[in-house]
Amino acid sequence: MIKRRKKRIDISPGTMLRPRMDNLWADEALLHKDDAAIKGDLDVLARDVSSELFVMTMFRAYRAASEAAQSRLDDVLPRWLAQSGHADTLRHMVIEQSLEPDVQALASAWLEEAGVDVTDLESRPSLFLKAYYYDDEALWGEKSQAYVTVLWYTDPRKRRAQGIGFLLDYNPPWDGSVKDILVTPREPPDKLIAYVHEVWSRGGMELETIGPERAKTVILTALTCNREAEIRLPRDMIRARNLFERQVLSLPDGPDTPAFTMEDFDFLARHGQRPEEIRRFEQTVGRRVRLGDGEEILVIDMRDWDDEEYEGW
């Protein structure tokens, strides 16, 4: 009889890192372990994985841990980072802004406690590049659609840039909601800026340069309209969740910026009518338009910013 060898399934340490970390930090025993035992657990977890992966996973697991567990970890993690050599990795990640915005301040605090000079981190230049806005109010007498885009440098040396463009619709049923988005590829900054202007100049549309505060206010105001109109976020925007959090939600507030959190984002990603369904109806049947007296009519085959000429923007 021939014995068959069982296939060995190799699971990489990186795959199991987050579950193992979650299990350790969810255990009430963590609260009663001494510092040496917790550091020993961290040493084991950090084996055979890259420093970048470990630090990123550590912050995500920390955010998911209980308040009591976080308090205990606050006592140990900064010193362990310094002793293990991972503080240098964390410092680089803070400089590159590769962490989620809501843990950037925590990361800086841990670095300071670990003995790292954070003066240059606190004064690092913003990666914000440009923001542009356009609406068609001058053309129609009131806004029908609008466009806002945010561009940012993707590295501190400012060699490449990327952006997110938001298309807003003020016709029913959108009533000011985000209708679609486009995430641009990474390009040299000058090339990206030229591309954005070239796309919109085709239709004689001149973009207005705006500040980061106004850009954030326009975008978040539109998202409150999504919530009120019960329209889900566009599929591409849900996929760009991390970019939205890092590059839009982290922009400075203006005096009229509405409150909006990533919990609100996640709610809108799961609830409401799918915008792709509404756009499909508009493309195949017609669009609803609200007249000056409030009456709504259905306009068949009306061409505007969804034409192929502006596809994706």
Rank of each mutant, 00 (worst) to 15 (best):
M21P: 05
L53M: 10
M21T: 06
E52V: 14
A29D: 15
L17P: 02
D22F: 08
A36E: 06
L17I: 02
L31W: 13
D43M: 11
D27F: 12
A29H: 14
S50E: 13
A37S: 07
L45I: 10
D41A: 08
L42W: 04
D35C: 08
L17R: 01
E28P: 12
D22E: 11
R18I: 11
F54V: 02
V55A: 05
L24V: 00
D48E: 10
K33Q: 10
M16S: 15
V44R: 08
L53A: 01
H32M: 11
S51G: 02
R18E: 09
L31G: 11
D34C: 03
D22V: 11
A36I: 04
D27C: 12
S51L: 11
A46I: 03
L45G: 02
D43C: 10
D35R: 04
L30F: 11
I38M: 06
L17M: 03
L24R: 07
N23W: 10
A37V: 11
F54L: 01
D48W: 07
K33S: 07
M16E: 14
R18C: 07
G40H: 12
P19E: 01
D48V: 00
S50N: 12
R47K: 06
L31Y: 13
R47E: 05
D27K: 13
A36M: 02
A46S: 04
V44S: 05
L53T: 09
R47I: 01
W25R: 07
L30N: 14
S50A: 08
K39R: 02
D27N: 15
R20M: 08
V49G: 03
A37Y: 01
E28T: 15
F54H: 04
W25T: 11
R18D: 10
V55F: 01
M16Y: 11
A26G: 14
V44L: 07
L42K: 03
M21L: 12
K33Y: 08
D22Q: 10
R47Q: 05
D34Q: 06
E52P: 07
D41M: 04
V44H: 07
D35K: 06
R47V: 01
K33A: 09
H32K: 12
E28W: 13
N23R: 15
D48L: 00
R18G: 05
D48M: 05
